[in-house]
Amino acid sequence: MTIEKRREREKEEMKELILSAASDIIAIEGFDKLSIRKIAKKIEYSPAIIYHYFNDKEEILNNVMQRGYKKIISAVSSTEMKNTSPEERLVEMTRNYIEAALNMPDEFMAAQLNKSNEALKHTSWLFKGASKEKLALSELCQCLQDIYKDKEADENTIELTAQMIAVSTLGLIMKLTVERNLVEEQRQRLIDFYSKEIVLRIANGNKIK
């Protein structure tokens, strides 16, 4: 390994250390309590070192949020779902989204419940036209369009339906996160019933006549 490649790897490792520390602090204390000083203390480096890798706390927050969002996008965009029916794809997208969120419960909850403008730039998706800006919502809308392919689907109705599915899914995730001591069998029953029954009812209930 060349010196240049080793330095690049060390740089990435340090950035990962900083972001992981920031994620831990956010999960425990929330976005508002994050500070460069706390990150520095957690990783046992001086604050000056952190500024060598990131311009400020906002840049760190953006990176943390983007990492979480990428996990969600990966969950709802799995290539394994491409050859399934749109209804089956909708079920799998929903289940995958729930499982991805539950794999990072504290971080996910801290992000979704934060009202700061910085966090809302990443977590807001109820505004009109959100499906053109938010990739996860766009994937959901595309799935609904495929379900309605034989009908004259209204774009606004599709987006509203996607937003309502997203809202109800978020509610289930939050409740499962709070009641995290549920027996695993019951947890899976709830996720399966919601994904296979409730979400499809929402989608099919809005099929264009």
Rank of each mutant, 00 (worst) to 15 (best):
T2V: 09
I3Q: 12
E4D: 03
R6T: 06
E8W: 06
R9E: 15
M14Y: 01
K15H: 07
L17G: 01
I25P: 07
I26F: 08
G30L: 02
K38C: 06
K42Q: 14
Y45F: 04
Y45D: 09
A48H: 02
Y53A: 01
F54Y: 03
K57I: 13
E58D: 10
L61C: 12
R67G: 08
G68C: 06
I72C: 03
S74M: 04
V76S: 05
S77P: 14
E80C: 04
N83S: 14
N83D: 15
S85I: 07
R89F: 07
M93P: 11
T94W: 05
R95G: 04
N96M: 03
N96A: 12
N96Y: 08
E99W: 09
P105C: 05
A111N: 03
A111G: 04
K115A: 08
E118M: 11
L120K: 15
H122R: 10
S124V: 10
F127T: 11
K128E: 15
G129K: 02
E133W: 10
A136L: 02
Q142E: 14
Q145P: 01
Q145I: 13
Y148K: 00
E152Y: 05
A153N: 05
E155W: 07
E155Y: 08
E155K: 12
T157Q: 11
L160C: 13
T161A: 05
I165Y: 03
V167K: 02
V167I: 15
G171L: 11
K175R: 13
E184T: 14
E185D: 15
R189G: 07
I191M: 04
S195D: 02
V199N: 04
L200F: 00
L200R: 04
L200V: 12
R201Y: 05
R201D: 14
A203G: 00
N204S: 06
K207Q: 00
K207E: 00
I208M: 11
